[in-house]
């Protein structure tokens, strides 16, 4: 019993210790699971910026989990001021299911409310032993792939769409060949982790597979971490424009009285300073000056949009990813 009370005391003390940091303002940013370091850096930059601008101090709280899970939490009452996701559909749902933001949320900020973007790329092992150059190399019998599960991870849905874009480009209107290619590709996947980072861990820590399919930002990030060339990035010539959408959540910022703060937090992501920081985290950005600086790191590619590949997100989810959709048909055992 004594330990019990001691536990309570320690717990209560630690809990109450936190708000003692008392800043003038507070902001909660819900974000996707792998953006922790990115926003930890950006928050410092923004705090300084906000203090310069208004003289107020801000404390920014971070919540990280898979972006679908985050969207569900926000709909069910997690009072986040801003959402910074890696899935357009997960922000759409905040309108469709939650009625928390207006339908035209994407028009409220430049570039479809996507301050940075990336594309899908490959990570291969030292010296590229299987000689992987493009999407068609991935369906070879001798190649094992690692990617997350398209049913649970947006990252994997992007990879699926990127491959589909390539297949459409290559086979034109021949739907049968496109399906065959997609089916072959999916059958080469050795492990479907539930999330993007899980797939990375499987590939890097567990040594499974020849190719990891994930965001270019993630691929470059790993290649940087192991600068001995243990892993090499390969960016295919045709890929998918993966947007990282952001929005403030109208209902909650109103309740929290954080309208301006939330808006500025997102708008400042487009500033040159923030864009440089984002590029440092291996994301592609829109600012011309920063683009110029990083031209050699991010080669020009043919990036297809969701409209080109699948006629918009709504259609993509319905035809490809819903239960019984194209993905389910392709993964059916042959």
């Amino acid at each position: 019993m004594k330990h019990l009370f001691k536990g309570i005391a320690v717990g209560a003390a630690l809990l109450s210790a936190q708000p003692a940091l008392s800043a003038d303002r507070e902001l909660l940013n819900t974000s996707y699971d792998i953006a922790r370091e990115l926003f930890a850096s950006y928050n410092e930059v923004f705090k300084e910026h906000w203090q310069e601008k208004t003289g107020e101090t801000v404390e920014i709280k971070q919540s990280h989990a898979g972006s679908s899970k985050q969207a569900q939490a926000i709909i069910q009452g997690l009072k986040a001021d801003v959402a910074t996701f890696n899935q357009v559909t997960d922000i759409n749902i905040l309108h469709d299911r939650g009625g928390l933001i207006p339908e035209n949320w994407a028009d409220r900020l430049p570039n479809n409310s996507s301050p940075y973007y990336s594309t899908m790329a490959f990570l291969v092992r030292e010296g590229n032993p299987k000689n992987i150059q493009n999407w068609d190399d991935l369906v070879r019998e001798d190649v094992d792939l690692v990617m997350p599960n398209p049913k649970t991870s947006g990252n994997a849905r992007y990879t699926y769409l990127a491959a589909l874009g390539y297949a459409q480009e290559t086979y034109g209107d021949d739907q049968e060949k496109i399906d065959q290619f997609m089916s072959d590709l999916l059958s080469r996947v050795k492990v479907f982790d539930s999330g993007g980072r899980g797939a990375t861990t499987t590939f890097v820590e567990r040594g499974i597979g020849d190719v990891l399919l994930t965001f270019e930002s993630e691929v470059l990030n790993i290649a940087d971490r192991f600068d001995n060339g243990e892993y090499q990035p390969v960016t295919p010539k045709v890929s998918f424009l993966a947007e990282f959408p952001v929005t403030w959540i109208d209902d909650y910022v109103e309740q929290n009285g954080t309208q301006e703060l939330a808006k500025e937090y997102l708008e400042y992501l487009y500033s040159e300073e923030a864009q440089r920081l984002l590029a440092g985290f291996n994301y592609r950005v829109h600012n011309d000056v920063v683009k110029e600086e990083n031209a050699d790191r991010f080669p020009a590619l043919q990036l297809k949009t969701i409209d080109e590949i699948a006629g918009g997100w709504e259609n993509a989810m319905e035809t490809h990813f819903a239960s019984g959709g194209k993905l389910d048909q392709l993964q059916r055992r042959r």
Binding site: S68, A71, Q72, N149, V191, F192, A322, Q331, R333
Partner: peptide
């Protein structure tokens, strides 16, 4: 979830199916 390869029709368990439906916002399913 960590140790299964989660390959469709081979190593997906039912709990994962429930989890998937949740990710699809399909609470009823």
């Amino acid at each position: 979830i960590f140790i299964a390869g989660n390959t469709p029709y081979v190593s997906e368990v039912t709990s994962l199916m429930i989890f998937m439906r949740l990710q699809e916002y399909d609470y009823a399913a």
